[in-house]
Design a protein around this nucleic acid. Structure first.
Lengths: 194, 194, 194, 194
DNA sequence: AATGAATGAGAGTTCATTCAT
DNA sequence: GATGAATGAACTCTCATTCAT
């Protein structure tokens, strides 16, 4: 048992360290200014080891982006799943996102870099947009949201709203709550069935 | 007089050709994959000539971004200045933006690259956000918009909405009008004074 | 006895598989483009196992070259040993060489790579040249060949003739028999005692 | 005049220095062990400058090979053009080749490396073979050579003879004259019309 | 004896920038 | 002002070799 697990564990540790270091470096320096030697140094592995997991620099970024997007999509879906009136759910949903972003400062920066990555089948932001789309669809079938809006278009615009708020927040340092209120306000008036 | 003007004219032509070529190349290939020789070749000038106007590659991108943002901000401000009820102005405002973007295909791509540029005093998107902010402020003082929303926050979120729509449109190829309707709908319900 | 032989047999199998795979890969891709992982994969052994037999990549190539040269030298010596008039022996000798080369397509390619190998005591081609030299010496002492030619020089030049023919044949795809006739013709006139 | 020639001259000097250094390095170390930094250092130019003339390492070797082959083909053609009986021309022809090779020690080594190069339309050795082929054809039409041998096949085999002699000479250090005599002897008996 | 994950030095190539013309 | 040949630091990626298991 210990023999069977020792290698995989060390291996997973390495993987995590590589991903962490990449996230940090890509976020703080951007894609091009980050080089593989830096990632190796910060991960505590050799350059070649990174190439054992990721065939090239672009796919390393893809890994980072996917991980962060999944994380954000999860917190989003969780917040949207609570059984309380939607008018009260909105602040929680947007709050969870803004909070995830403020507590994971890399997230905002990484989202911007997505264009570089080699995404195998999904483009940047698509994981999150798809999560939003599902939430909207369900809310419509529950009769909570207006039926005359297209979930995919709502998802695209709502994702943009959050990104816009995120960007401004990170630039100005404004208190997140301000955006949560504004976002929840906008979304309620826009989407709730009357 | 003619002597004084002849050169400046040729000079301005050169400037424009450099900016056009850069816009095209940055948009289609991204920042890093575009090199100064390409820009020189497409502009019909020598590499050194570009360096007479722009101290480095980053500031060339900054010039491109600034030009495009100003263009977008102009069309936005013009559309928002028409003296018709706001409920009818919204489709025009968003329509003008979406149209500018669809007819200037470089615009969407360039916006994404902004992170690389050396901006002297204003960060990417700020020209547009600032235009929106002015429009909102004026609409509030006219009594047309709810007074209880912060113009700067509205500007950030609204800018995001358009970006989100733009991105989705460019990815899926959906007809712009779909987004214009959705954006105008969302904005009216969110912002108009009741 | 069976216990003592079982392992050696498996071991010899492994050796052969490594040599076969190397021959194939070196011949088709060249020395530098062939890497040890490929050899390991095609041999069905681990990388480390190859290093148990061959201290480094160069000596692996040396092994391959030596094996092929010995094979060619054998067929040469066998053909030259037949008890028929030399005038009839020449076509057989050159025919056997050209045939060995055409039926072992790796041979030609491998000969070219020899420069890279770490040869312990004999340089590329020397096995074959030495076989030719012996044949010439014997033919001279039998009174069949002119006595006024230096066997070592004849060997060098004759080896080159075959190589030249081989190279041309592989490049142009000409029928081997054409070269066999030419080679036998040249050699008879050059070497036979009158 | 001086203004028009100054740059090209400096440029041609550079080209020559690059070619010289490459020839020397490829010959003494082989293709893979020679790296572009070494070539740059020995040429007295920057690495990038080499890439201004040759798009990659392979084409640099191609340039070297072509230059040397042309040189050898020239000396060959010149020697074969003298108006003396063929029986006396052979020693001169082979002598010129062996001499070119002994005085240009890189030549032998470079010939072996040819496989790596990117040849635009002609494969290694083909320049020389083609020169030999022309000589044979003319000698046949002059009635000096036997008409029943194929010039292209003779060229391939004769080229091999010289290569074999060259290789042996360089390995054993034997006096070139020994090979010249043997080669001329072999060629006369093989090719001359009786 | 056999394995194969890990290593890291070293390679070829690019390209922003300079400056003599 | 305009040019573009020259520069060389810096990058990503490869792969022979090792050694703990």
């Amino acid at each position: 048992m210990s023999a069977r697990q020792k290698r995989p564990k060390a291996s997973r540790d390495r993987d995590l360290r590589i991903l962490e270091a990449s996230t940090h470096l890509f976020a703080s320096q951007g894609f091009e200014r980050t080089n593989m030697s830096q990632v190796a140094r910060e991960s505590g592995v050799a350059v070649g080891t990174i190439y054992l997991r990721y065939p090239n620099k672009g796919s390393l970024l893809a890994g980072v982006v996917q991980q962060l997007e999944s994380q954000l999509a999860d917190s989003l879906t969780r917040a949207a799943g609570q059984e309380i009136p939607w008018i009260d759910r909105f602040p929680l949903v947007f709050g969870s996102m803004m909070e995830t972003v403020s507590t994971t400062p890399e997230m905002g920066a990484i989202m911007q870099l997505a264009a570089h990555a080699e995404f195998k089948g999904h483009s940047p932001g698509s994981i999150i947009r798809s999560a939003i789309e599902q939430i909207v669809t369900r809310a419509q079938s529950d009769g909570a949201f207006r039926p005359d809006v297209l979930p995919s278009v709502v998802a695209a615009i709502a994702y943009g709203m959050v990104e816009g708020a995120m960007g401004h927040m990170m630039q100005t340092g404004t208190w997140p709550q301000v955006y949560v209120i504004a976002l929840a306000d906008a979304a309620s008036r826009w989407l709730l069935a009357t």
